[in-house]
Simulated scan of single mutants.
Amino acid sequence: MLENRGDYFKERIKELEKEAEHLQMQKQEIKEIITLSTRIFQNTQIVDDIHNINEQLNIEYLRLADVKMKIEKYNEINDLTKQSNEKGKEILEKTIEYEAEYNQYSENIENIETHFQNLVQAAYGEDGVLNYSYENDVKKRSSTGRIKICCQIADENSHGRLYMKINMFDLALFLNRIDNNTGCDLLIHDGSYCKPNPGAKAKVVNYVDNYLKDAEKGQYFITINKSEVEETDLEDFRKKKMIVAEFDREHGDEHRFFGCKY
């Protein structure tokens, strides 16, 4: 791909215009030759020259047709270049329009980023990174459209921290909806919350629980194994009556969900 197609086409157009001007001059010369040949044909009485003159005329007409065809091609290229420029202008205008629309949500974006920072601080006492940015380069294609999202925490390559990062990203969006009283005020994290970092999980759950109670709205449901949190945190959840349902896999599975073993 060329780095700057606009400049390339402009230079190419100039070259084609010069060549077209040269061809126009050739066309004029050919017309003059045809005129002269026609005049000779009309004025001469020499029968022997008629055949030669007709052959010359045919040659010149073929050359003239070739010149006309090339001029039409150059004009077609000019039209395509104009269309390409107009389409590029349209893309640029749309990009600017979408960026202006994106900027209208700057407060929401800042709020989401702040929630993520607070959740990482609550879980690990560290700083996390969550940045939204708008890609306004019309030459690129982004896998997330025009909005680029960067979300990172320390040591996120470990299994526990990676899943905690994903959960905290979800929670940042969820708490932003709670703040703005918009969208779904329910979030469900179904399945194991991941066994590593038991202390971090309990801290996040307590943080969200306190936030929703202060806001007096919103529901956050999670399913976790008892082994994924410290016993002291589990007991604290029981005292606060945060546990909706608790099932035990011991004692021959008699207390499992529906009393059935799957």
Rank of each mutant, 00 (worst) to 15 (best):
F116A: 02
K70R: 13
L186V: 04
L175M: 09
Y207H: 04
I40T: 15
Y102A: 02
N131F: 11
Q152T: 15
Q121K: 09
Q219P: 04
A202Q: 01
K217T: 13
I40V: 14
G199R: 13
E110Y: 10
A100Q: 13
N206M: 14
M242L: 09
K18N: 08
S143I: 14
L175W: 02
R12Q: 14
D253M: 04
Q24W: 09
L62H: 10
K70N: 03
E228A: 07
E97K: 13
M168D: 06
N75F: 07
I166R: 10
T223M: 07
T44I: 03
E19P: 00
K226G: 09
K239G: 01
D49N: 13
I40K: 15
C150H: 10
I147L: 08
I77G: 02
A200D: 02
N136Q: 05
E254K: 03
D253G: 12
I77D: 08
I77S: 01
D179P: 04
L16D: 07
D155Y: 08
D155G: 06
R146F: 13
E135C: 02
T223Q: 04
E135R: 09
E55T: 14
D233R: 07
L16M: 11
I30D: 00
N197D: 13
L23T: 01
D185K: 09
K201Q: 02
V229R: 00
L92S: 04
K70I: 06
R141M: 02
N58W: 02
N167F: 09
I40F: 14
A154P: 03
K240I: 01
N58S: 06
T182K: 13
R141T: 11
I243M: 01
E60Y: 15
L23M: 10
A200T: 06
T232C: 08
A245E: 14
T223H: 00
T95G: 05
K87M: 11
Y207W: 00
T44R: 06
C260P: 03
L62W: 04
R39V: 05
G145F: 01
H115A: 00
R161W: 03
H255D: 12
I53Q: 01
T44M: 00
S158N: 10
I91N: 05
D248R: 06
L173Q: 03
I33C: 00
S106T: 11
Q24N: 12
E156D: 12
Y105H: 07
Y102W: 03
N85P: 00
Q104H: 13
T81P: 00
R256T: 05
C260D: 14
N206I: 04
D209V: 02
V205W: 12
G259F: 10
D190S: 02
K140L: 11
E101A: 03
I166C: 00
Q28W: 15
D179K: 06
K89L: 09
I46N: 11
K261Y: 03
R177G: 01
E113H: 07
H255I: 08
N157E: 12
E29K: 12
K14I: 02
D155K: 08
E19I: 03
G259K: 03
A65N: 07
L119R: 06
L234S: 08
